[in-house]
Simulated assay, not measured.
Amino acid sequence: MLTPPEQFGIVEPGLYRSDTLHPSHFPFIRSLNIKTAILLTPELPSRAMSNFFEENQIRLIDLALGSWKNNNNNTTGDAQGNGSNNNNGSGSNPNQGESNFSTMVTSSIPVAPFHTSWWKPLSEELIKDGLEMILDAKNYPIIVMDTSGIHEIGTFMGCLRRLQHWNFSSIIVEYRAYAGNKARYVNEQFIELFDIDWITLPESLPNWWIEQEEMWHEEEEERELQLQQEREARANERQQELNAAASLALTLSNNPS
């Protein structure tokens, strides 16, 4: 029997959200053929989850810790890119035998400890990098996770919905559907204030994004055409009123009482 995580959800085709995975969830997650897993909370995954990702060739991207974990043994092991995975320069690896994941610190994401200002559930940099990753078709299928499946991920997906041109009321309805009585106003405020113009779209976009953007542009063109027609109708009505007033004035001037 396949058991999904408690806070599992389908965001878009090939894009999923979830709370922390446990061994009972692994068969279900395996059935999704996940290629990339993105963590939003600054904590290391359990050994069981790390092993599961490794065994199933799933790339683990730990955004909050500012690191990428791959099954690529040629990936650099430190920020200098020297190919070493040493912690003390001795060539030993304290995790040797537990996992073959190598780690590369990304320059665009703040390295742990994970800092945000007092009111922000996530940093703008993390949201930007994460959204650009889930909009890159080369990373699909993708699962995005946080510890609870509510707060960080709810904020993150709310920013995605902003980018998808959802109205804010619909975004909050979706956020609260997952959060329930744990909803936080600060998360909703972050979603509302996040600057979506900061996002750079990848060259390779998923099909669902392309289709939705085409539909949105068509709807925008239809709305603009409708507005133009309404403006022209109002202008015609106004012109008719002016013509009628001028005609009345001419009639009165030709027929003084």
Rank of each mutant, 00 (worst) to 15 (best):
E218I: 14
L160W: 03
E188A: 14
E221C: 04
H25E: 02
K138I: 11
R238L: 07
R47Q: 12
A179P: 04
E12Q: 09
R162Y: 08
N187W: 05
N187Y: 03
N88F: 13
L44K: 13
Q164M: 15
E220H: 03
W216M: 08
N71V: 05
Y178R: 13
N56E: 10
E174Q: 15
E219H: 10
A183L: 05
V144A: 05
N255L: 14
E6W: 05
P113Q: 15
D195R: 08
L242A: 13
S204C: 11
F8E: 02
T36M: 01
H151D: 06
N51V: 07
E6A: 06
E237M: 12
H25N: 15
A137W: 01
N100E: 07
L65N: 13
I142N: 04
R238S: 13
W166A: 01
G91T: 12
A64F: 03
I10K: 08
Q57F: 11
L15C: 06
S169L: 06
N207H: 10
D62K: 03
E188T: 13
I172H: 02
I38P: 00
F190I: 05
R184S: 05
E124K: 14
P202N: 00
A183R: 06
Q80E: 08
I29D: 00
M133G: 04
S84M: 09
W208M: 04
S123H: 10
L15N: 06
F156I: 06
I191S: 02
W216A: 09
L39A: 04
S107R: 11
L63G: 00
G81H: 08
D136P: 00
R161K: 11
K120G: 01
Q96S: 12
A177L: 14
D62Y: 01
G180Q: 15
Q212G: 08
T251P: 00
P256D: 05
G77L: 05
L65S: 10
P141V: 11
V144P: 02
E214F: 01
I143T: 03
N88P: 00
N82Y: 08
E12W: 01
T20W: 08
L227E: 14
F114W: 14
E125V: 10
V105M: 08
Y185C: 12
N70R: 10
E230A: 15
N207V: 12
N85F: 10
E152D: 11
